[in-house]
Amino acid sequence: MSANTAVADKYRNNFLKEIEEQVEMGDWVKMCMQCGVCSGSCPTNFQSAWEHPPQELFMMIRAGKREEVLTSTSMWNCTSCYNCIVRCPRKIPITHIMHGIAEYAHRIGKAPKMQATRFFSVLFWKNCTNTGRVNELKLSLGLYFKDGFVQGVKNGLAMQSVAIGLIKAGRLNPLELFGGHKCKDQKGIQAMLAKAYEIERVRKAAKMAG
């Protein structure tokens, strides 16, 4: 997109429409009245500020700030606590929209590559859909080793006391590394998910085409 078209798109519906078509619950973005209760309700926003809190993201979408929104780290801060949802005077499903924007940014490759929660989110989904059930050990190790082996060992060592505590309490089984819990009908699950992805892809493409 050239700089000129970017200017021309400001405060136009283009990006809003894109979000409505591609993002789960994206058609709610236009309903925001900028009261800010979501931004004020977000726990991570208070512990360590989001770059753009939800209500501001919504305004940015309406103002056509496509790049800034999709490359933002903000929505990846969502802890899914649902505070914003229950307080929103417009009943906007903000949590889902945050997830949805993040998913879309990730899908089209705009999401910040180094964002830890993005990495973990992907890892988690792959982990749980692989066998149908979560393998907590592999999940943790996957996270620790995301930045390479050396960093992984460091991360692992930092978390050593936590892991030992859990192992002692019988809540982390080292043997999970070699198999662990799984569903019987893994094949069926994979086929089912593949189909779901396919349907969703077709639907979103159709929306994009208008």
């Binding site: 405060y11 519906n13 809003l16 236009k30 309903m31 009245m33 900028q34 305004m59 309406r62 103002a63 417009r90």
Partner: peptide, 22 residues
């Protein structure tokens, strides 16, 4: 934005229709 009383519903309807409020 000043839409007193049930004007608030009218405001919401406009948002539903895609009117952008800035």
């Amino acid at each position: 934005l000043r839409t007193p009383g049930n004007g608030e519903d009218f405001y919401r309807s406009a948002q539903e229709k895609g009117v952008i409020f800035t």
